[in-house]
Design a protein around this nucleic acid. Structure first.
Lengths: 210, 210
DNA sequence: GTATTAACTAACCATTTGGTTAATTTCTGT
DNA sequence: ACAGAAATTAACCAAATGGTTAGTTAATAC
């Protein structure tokens, strides 16, 4: 092999592609830029991935494959509701912190090209939300939590976890945070969010109505 | 004037540009496409707006000018906290419903080019969040609500309102909604969100500690 | 009516961009 | 060592794209 660098070309391409695509999206990304970043000839991109779209798909699939199965797993784990909300929030925010540009990337591409998005998405996210929804409904029925629409609660949880990552520049700007302050802010949320949610849905008058 | 159409060319360009830019972002949009949609010659785009970027700026500024002042106004309105949360949520969601593609658009462009974003943003969003933050802090101090970080609460409110618009295709897909069901879902949130929040932050043991 | 300006068009241009090709180098198995 | 395969490169290509220009038509002023 020619390259003096340790990693294989294909892997280096994918890594550069990830960085560029995550940051600029498929429309904003340039094949030349990806090649430059990987320090290889542009033709190599096509040699390994045939086209820009295929390369993008590989990147996208990797992002999806990294996040979605874990979300599914968290959502379907067998756990009492409150503990699950705490567990989910903590683990999910940790996961997003470790991949903090992915949410904005996914949201952008989803809105850009929903058709393609769901083709890939459904491949990794076979698990449906019914289990969690059912669990919430059961908790309502048993009077463990106040009456509410399980779907709304589910989406509330997701909103609270994901939104700050998507709106990160805005939040940092408005509240005058630097990188460190933002990380700190996010870490606090791991505990704040479940507290916020559980506070809201707890049935204070502990009478079970059934 | 030549055109048989009622509206002036400049306005028609802006409207087409809005539709295209909102949907595809600055990178995904094509000047030719905007011209086609407006049913005018591509040169007219440059005649009226000089460049793609200037045209985009006009669109972006209009979107910002449409949303941001109203948000500022809502956030700074003088109202008791609970009523304000209810009022804000209702009015803000209504506003976003009427401009339902703007959130995803703004988020995309913000993450694409934060520098430019905040140049325009700060022009329209001069009002800072301090007033609302202070109001929350006061409510905490007076024992009206439980102890909490005002910033976290503020961001929770925003998350709950905005996120569903950004993640709309996802939500519709996962929960099998059609257009109508989604509108319905959003409308319900106008009441669900403030209830959710107020439930969470209300001091149930009504002893004021001061 | 005529001159001047504004609005508009078609054709054109330079650059960028994704993609290809033909030739060369490096690897690998024997 | 050597043949064939895999990896790599530089140069090239066609299409797309933002932008321009020179000329035309329509409106406005006088």
């Amino acid at each position: 092999m020619k390259s003096t660098k340790d990693k294989k070309t294909e892997e280096r391409i994918l890594e550069s592609a990830k960085r560029i695509f995550y940051l600029k999206g498929i429309d904003g990304a340039r094949m030349q830029e990806i090649a430059d970043e990987a320090e290889i000839n542009k033709a190599m991109l096509h040699y390994y991935f045939r086209s820009k779209e295929k390369l993008f798909d590989a990147v996208f699939a990797e992002a999806a494959g990294l996040i979605l199965p874990k979300v599914s797993e968290l959502l379907n784990s067998e756990m009492p509701l409150f503990r699950k909300i705490e567990y989910f929030t903590d683990k999910y925010i940790t996961l997003l912190s470790e991949n903090s540009v992915i949410p904005a990337f996914v949201i952008r591409e989803m809105n850009n090209n929903p058709t393609k998005f769901f083709r890939i998405f459904n491949k990794y996210f076979s698990v449906k939300p019914e289990i969690f929804i059912k669990q919430i409904r059961k908790a309502v029925d048993e009077g463990e939590i106040i009456p509410l629409d399980p779907m709304q609660l589910h989406i509330n949880i997701m909103s609270l976890c994901i939104f700050p990552f998507i709106a990160r520049p805005l939040i940092m700007n408005i509240f005058g945070m630097n990188e460190k302050a933002f990380v700190n802010f996010i870490n606090k949320r791991k505990r704040e969010i479940p507290e916020f949610i559980i506070n809201s849905i707890t049935n204070k008058s502990n009478k079970k109505h059934k």
